[in-house]
């Protein structure tokens, strides 16, 4: 008799550990609702790219159209945001298509230490230099044997990976992301047909909302989670084209090798950047109140958090 109910265990296995925020910096303060992702069927398909050949795109045109419609429905973005949506779509397609193998790193861990977005500091004079590094982020890091096992199971499903049956009798199989997407998108289309006699992507905005409300919430959460990753991860993963996602939230992204504290060897001390100070508020900071809808939400969160609290 398993100690953990099968369905709960399947769900738990799907949770990225890091969706529970780490290192005490925010700790439980933001884990207000546990995120979970689904366990659905598994068709066991394994497509392994061969080195030196272009990878086959996993999601086909129809699936991509459905995916795009889902993203636009669950994350309506104001303004002209085609590039952001393109980035999210590209990020998910790449994650599902670019599967790592023994001689191929896939698109799991971008390289390091630096992108080419920021210059080296000139430590002799305490300012930015005009020398930029090459972009190491473009060169993905090869996986170790264990990392390969884990990521292939996560993408393709544990039943396609040798050596992966060690807890199946207790926790059940790991359902691969590929199958979660394939079956999740197919289910949405079927729901569209059942409800409005049309595929999901051909529905109007209000109709899509109706269908999404009836869809598997785990799949919706999976897509939103990946959309967030795409919007705000470094652009080398395929989303966030040109750092556009970061611009929307006023965030710099990666700052190395310049950083914010520039050492000046001549005075043996630090200089702050006047445009982006470390120890003071930004020069243009307005201290303006939150908009009403944000303030309403923050009041709600504060109330739900329980005491002690203020206001």
């Amino acid at each position: 008799m398993p100690a953990v109910p099968r369905k709960a265990a399947e769900k738990a296995r799907g949770i990225s550990r890091r969706q529970v925020l780490r290192w005490g910096i925010l700790g439980g303060s933001l884990a207000l609702i546990p995120l979970s992702v689904p366990g659905c069927g598994d068709d066991g398909e394994a497509v392994v790219p061969e080195r030196g050949r272009e990878l086959a795109a996993f999601l086909g045109d129809d699936e991509l159209a459905t995916l795009r419609a889902v993203i636009e429905t669950v994350l309506p973005i104001d303004g002209n945001t085609t590039r952001l949506y393109d980035g999210i779509e590209r990020y998910i397609q790449r994650l599902l298509s670019d599967v790592p193998s023994m001689d191929h790193p896939g698109a799991i861990f971008a390289g390091g230490p630096f992108s080419n977005r920021n210059p080296f500091p000139d430590v002799e004079h305490g300012k930015a230099s005009d020398v930029f590094p090459r972009n190491d982020f473009e060169h993905f890091v090869p996986l170790t044997r264990l990392q390969l096992l884990g990521w292939r199971a996560r993408l393709l499903g544990s039943e396609t990976v040798d050596e992966f049956d060690f807890n199946a009798s207790v926790l059940g199989p790991v359902v691969g992301l590929r199958n979660q997407y394939r079956s999740g998108l197919q289910a949405l289309d079927e729901l569209g047909h059942a409800t409005f006699a049309r595929s999901f992507s051909s529905l109007g905005a209000d109709e899509r909302q109706v269908v999404i409300q009836r869809a598997n919430p785990d799949f919706v959460a999976l897509v939103i989670g990946h959309a967030i990753e795409a919007l705000f991860s470094v652009p080398e993963y395929g989303g966030n084209p040109g750092g556009l996602g970061w611009q929307f939230i006023g965030y710099d992204g990666d700052s190395q090798p310049l950083g914010y504290a520039i050492f000046d060897r001549s005075s043996n001390s630090y200089r702050e950047r006047s445009d982006k100070p470390t120890s003071t508020a930004d020069p243009n900071e307005t201290f303006s109140p939150f908009p009403a809808e944000i303030a309403n939400l923050l009041r709600l969160l504060t109330r739900l958090a329980g005491s002690p609290r203020f206001p």
């Binding site: 272009e54 045109d61 191929h104 790193p105 390289g111």
Partner: peptide, 12 residues
Amino acid sequence: MKGPVPASSART
């Protein structure tokens, strides 16, 4: 036809 998506072939 969209895709196939480009893959990184560079290796560390």
